[in-house]
Write a protein that binds this DNA or RNA. Structure first.
Lengths: 207, 207, 207, 207
DNA sequence: TATGAATGAGCGTTCATTCAT
DNA sequence: TATGAATGAACGCTCATTCAT
């Protein structure tokens, strides 16, 4: 075939990733076979190895780049014109997107494998992202609700919200017929508003 | 060899399950081998098949019965003398117990497998437990905070809290150095109290 | 099958080694397949792995223990009642034994692999054996021919004889119709005797 | 592209052979890959097949033409002004040349393959060369040492010396730290001289 | 002619499962 | 009943070879 344009190669790479993501999501990384992925991608098993050195790498490759925009926004909220409420909603709206469940499946599976195999790099990556996002959450909470947070353990609260996010993803995966993540978020936001607004009112009362 | 007491057989079955749970949690179901489990249980690989027809069945058998007491309490809060705050704390305290992470690993993995393989029975089971617990949460919230919840989407809030619980488990697994689940819980409870207490105060103010 | 006698296991191990030696000799280690060896041994491929952890180990296992008696004699000539001429003949007689060529093939192949892959342990082993045998050769030469060796580089001569041994093995392998190793040996021994006997005679002449 | 000069094609063929010889010597024929050879030769894998129909053929092509001068001299000693001692030394000096070990490796490997696969042509070739060289050795021995060889099995001795040559090559490959081939040769030549010189003296004595 | 992406058969190895003992 | 040796299908991966460009 010789000298195929880079665009062709990139497209092929993409199609392999897509096929892999589909098969991995369907069967799990362990149960999926390279032959299946190849078939799904319409190529031969051997060809995959020109693009990815191993099944493991292919699996890793499947995980990158979902909901990048939202992730970036949380990590650098000061660079984005947004507020906590809006960004939260956008984030949870992402979970309603078709394919979000497949992403969750894959993400959770990879996370479990990483922990199990003591894949330091991967765990580290997760930890770093966690930290950054939690920092972003805290930043937005402080900016949006300011002094009213006084007395609250802000870091713990931010992490609790992050936990809630992951739990909601998991919940949606396991029980699609349950209350939607967005509605859960609304409930929690209502709670927060009640807490913060109330504070203010009680403050004003005290004055 | 002939007749062996039923108690003996049950004990053997139990010891296989324990061994399997340990190995599965360590390596994941896919990576664990029957030989390992047999060794851990102190029997031969062949013997396992007298008690479980396949590895998959063995894996299914492993998932039952961790933190039963707490689960039961949430599902039937009216039969237990407890309140939301106390039961929450007990629940999260469980997560600090050694072995809790292994349980989380196993639970998540099995959950993923169940969804993946469309294991209706298993998904159903998860869904049922979810419903019952959420109902229990809602029950306790209402009993403990009563009228102050007015205007809140109680069911959604209860589910959000359940999501938070699972997210916190996952978080702890992935990033043990992050804020402990219990501290996250404290933060969230502080928020709730602020919201509800404030409500009362603002109510009283308004009156 | 359970509890099979150790003798059975040993026999099985032996039969695998025999099958492997045969196939390896026929096709070379690289070209031989585990499936072939299994078939030759009358078992399944998987069964081999209960006895040898890898093809490589199996190949190593094939190399041990050929002509052990002779090797031992050269390495410890002082413990054996023998002389250079007798032991040499016995050594070369071994090469006429059926199967000797297959051994040579295997030995040379393994040696090449060892050098190529920088298998330090294996190369070391060869080097050690070389040293010991050369020492033995030198020992016997000195004991049998004594003072008449004066002026000769004994170590170099011993090594030359060892080289000759290996070359003769190789020669026989490559050109079976050429002069037999034993006849080559005779020629060389005649040369040695001429040299040493002559020395004596010339000595006596000088006196 | 059309017509390329024959010289060009030959040069290309040569460069492929060189590359192949290098890679084969480094890794062995089995472990070497066509891709590696292509890279070493600075062309594409596909191009090799314009010059050699298969890897095996390429390997065969690699064996020709090392130390041609010395080989020719042994095969036609009457056409060269030399004597046994000098030619032997030149031959063994070749073994000290850098790259000699790689040649030995390749030669031995190919020889083993030839025997294994019953490659009649190749074995034949080796046999023919053997015969010719042995004849040359015998010729030189007779010319240089003449009558003093009486009673010796000249053909066997010549073959023994050829065996020694190959053994020394092998030895040097396997145990570079052992006594150098040239020193082994010296020892053997000293032995021969002792034998032949002695003979003369004893002859003269007898007369 | 040369390229190099693609093929696909084939390998070593694993391990759930079976079954003779 | 328990054993554990044996099975054999299946997998990830390699690489000599082909052929569209």
């Amino acid at each position: 075939m010789a000298k195929v344009s880079q665009a062709h190669l990139d497209a092929r790479r993409r199609s392999i990733l897509d096929a892999a993501a589909k098969v991995f999501a369907e069967k799990g990384v362990a149960a999926a076979t390279m032959a299946e992925i190849a078939q799904e991608a319409g190529i031969s098993p051997g060809a995959i190895y020109r693009y990815f050195p191993s099944k493991e790498d292919l699996a890793r490759g499947c995980m990158q780049g979902s909901a990048e925009a939202v992730k970036a926004a949380w990590q650098h909220p000061e660079q984005v014109e947004t507020d906590f409420r809006t960004l939260s909603r956008a984030t949870f709206a992402e979970l309603e997107r078709p394919g979000a469940d497949a992403d969750t499946r894959l993400l959770l599976e990879r996370a479990l494998v990483a922990v199990r195999d003591d894949d330091a790099a991967m765990v580290e990556e997760f930890g770093t992202e966690l930290q950054r996002i939690v920092r972003g959450v805290a930043f937005l909470l402080r900016r949006d609700f300011g002094a009213r947070l006084e007395g609250l353990d802000l870091e713990a609260l931010a992490q609790a919200l992050y936990s809630f996010y992951w739990g909601a993803r998991f919940m949606r995966l396991m029980a699609p017929e349950a209350v939607a993540p967005t509605r859960q978020l609304e409930a929690l936001q209502a709670l927060m508003e009640a807490a913060f607004t109330a504070d203010r009112e009680s403050d004003s009362t005290e004055r």
